[in-house]
Design a protein around this nucleic acid. Structure first.
Length: 403
DNA sequence: TCTGGGGTCCTAGGACCC
DNA sequence: TCTGGGGTCCTAGGACCC
């Protein structure tokens, strides 16, 4: 939409989103507790989001719940309100669509906007003023407190959001990008995690300023041409990536960490059936089919392995996904047979239902799913929508087809 | 008090085709 | 029989993000 020079990018980031939603969902219970933690409560659970008051005790998201409670024994832990989070996220996005020509959802609680080209329409309003107006409108219309970072580049908007939190705005003026970035540590940059940070530290680099003083040639030699260029640009606040409103979903997955490790093949097969059904359901809801099915296993010792298989045609039925997933599971179990901590099923290489070939181009192949299978799967979805999840159990879906 | 669940992107090697 | 590249697709693994 907008050219490089006139980009006016804002990142709208919901403040401790899961905690906010949990409070809105239960205003008299969880909503009242200042030390609120959202996350898994089982023996293997972790914290997804912590209230600002709880963070003062050192609690962080991703931390095992047990450890969080050791640090902050008074805290209350509530499960992630998944459905409500999806609804609130959609509500925020809809309001943003009214306020900005380009909206890209980066995650459930982050949205990039590009207001480039709207200067005349907004009567010359400063970007910081626009950001503050958006903050107030989103709050009024959805009840969600957000913070906004802004600038001419995505990376600048992203880093600026850190200074805006909570419930504030921070906009970097055009031309001030490099000077703005120079105040941060390399670990503050999005895209630099523990592994890259270790490599940077080996070269004696820990701040943006230090890295900006190194010639591009050396960065390329140390970290490879791709990452060298990437780093050279980011420490100067340069980010060529556009805000892309057409961004489409590329994969769907469902995984579960078990309360206790599972080593029994029949039990694993039952679990993988449930996961296959979860994925299939979402696929059909979005009117998509998947050509690739992937199974992920995490062994008792945390070794994580995966196997995938790509079909010539897209699949959408639970039965077909389950068939592929089961064979991949056996493959993985054949290579290493130990207690399984986590099992996951994912699908990718997504194609639109309508766009998938209806013609039997693969007549000599045994089809994994027929048009009849698909019709049945969609009918089962409708019955479940109407009468609840338990109206038809997965076993019915897996009946043998007519021979 | 070990390490969730949902994603994206990148890399590298092998197969296969021209 | 040996020797090239280049392009695309698939697979596995890893890093990273919220």
């Amino acid at each position: 939409m907008s050219s490089q020079g006139s980009r006016r990018i804002l990142l709208v980031d919901c403040d401790s989103f899961f905690v906010q939603v949990a409070r809105l969902e239960d205003p008299d219970g969880a909503g009242r507790h200042p030390l609120l933690l959202v996350g898994g409560r089982s023996n293997r659970g972790v914290i997804t989001s912590a209230s600002y008051a709880a963070r003062e005790y050192g609690v962080r998201s991703g931390m095992p719940t047990r450890r969080a409670l050791a640090l902050c024994p008074e805290a209350e832990v509530v499960p992630v309100p998944r459905g409500a989070c999806v609804e609130r996220s959609r509500a925020v996005r809809e309001v943003l669509h009214e306020l900005s020509p380009v909206v890209q959802a980066a995650s459930i609680d982050e949205f990039y906007l590009d207001l480039g080209g709207t200067e005349r329409m907004l009567g010359g309003e400063e970007l910081a003023a626009t950001a503050d107006r958006i903050r107030r409108v989103v709050r009024e219309r959805t009840g969600i407190a957000v913070s906004l970072g802004g600038g001419t580049q995505r990376v600048v908007a992203k880093v600026a959001t850190r200074l805006a939190k909570p419930n504030g705005v921070h906009v970097v003026a055009p031309g001030g990008e490099a000077a703005f970035m120079a105040r941060f540590r390399l670990s503050d940059l999005p895209g630099i995690g523990p592994a890259f940070l270790r490599q940077l530290e080996e070269k004696g680099l820990s701040t943006v300023k230090e890295a900006a003083a190194v010639e591009a040639e050396w960065l390329a030699r140390w970290f490879g041409p791709g990452r060298g260029t990437w780093l050279w640009e980011r420490v100067r606040g340069i980010d060529p990536s556009e805000v892309d409103a057409r961004d489409r979903r590329k994969s769907i997955s469902s995984e579960r960490t078990f309360f206790e490790d599972i080593d029994d093949d029949d039990e694993l097969e039952r679990r993988i059936l449930q996961l296959s059904c979860n994925v299939g359901r979402q696929l059909r809801m979005k009117e998509l089919r998947a050509r690739t099915v992937t199974v992920k296993i995490r062994d008792h010792d945390f070794t994580t392995r995966q196997a995938g298989n790509t079909q010539p045609e897209g699949l959408e039925t639970d039965r077909a996904i389950f068939a592929v997933a089961t064979s991949l599971l056996h493959q993985l179990r054949h290579r290493r047979r130990t207690g399984v901590r986590l099992l996951g099923v994912g699908v990718s290489n997504l194609v639109r239902q309508a766009a998938s070939a209806q013609l039997d181009l693969f007549g000599d192949r045994i089809a994994l799913e027929s048009e009849r299978d698909r019709t049945i799967a969609r009918a089962v979805d409708r019955i479940r929508d109407r009468y609840g999840r338990e109206a038809l159990r997965p076993a019915r879906v897996l009946e043998e087809p007519d021979k």
